[in-house]
Design a binder for these strands. Structure first.
Length: 120
DNA sequence: ATAGTGACTGAAC
DNA sequence: GGTTCAGCCACTA
């Protein structure tokens, strides 16, 4: 571990934050979507939505992280340019999610908040 | 160390 | 309804 990196943030080092983000994204059910901000809030860093996006960028090397189910708060596929091979909308459509003009159709209905998994 | 960048967001206009 | 602005914070140059 890089000591210069590990204690930069006294609340949570970035490596642990990334792994938590990946764990949350793994919980998103197929056919549903969530947002960067929702994940950030769930992890207690409500203002770190950008870091969630950054974690997605780093999720390439991680197994079983459905990064295509994470969109911005408007349901827009803001990360579509970061998917090599099968595109983001192809992956979404494959789960039955309709995509129109880079936006998830019925985004409000399909939105999944990570906090939902605490209800049970 | 400083400046610029970005898969973001909420408030302000 | 929009569009713009200012915080946000890890990363890179």
């Amino acid at each position: 571990m890089n000591p210069a990196r590990s204690n930069r943030n006294p609340r949570l080092n970035s490596q642990a934050f990334f792994e938590r983000v990946w764990d949350v994204v793994r919980l998103v059910p197929p056919g549903r979507v969530t947002t960067y901000g929702a994940i950030a809030r769930f992890l207690g860093s409500g203002r770190s939505a950008r870091m969630v996006g950054y974690a997605m960028n780093a999720s390439h090397s991680q197994p079983d992280v459905p990064a295509h189910r994470v969109v911005n708060r408007n349901g827009m596929l803001s990360g579509k340019h970061h998917f090599p091979g099968q595109s983001m909308e192809e992956r979404l459509e494959a789960e039955g999610i309709r995509v129109e003009k880079d936006h998830v159709k019925d985004f409000h209905k399909l939105f999944w908040d990570p906090a939902e998994c605490l209800k049970f």
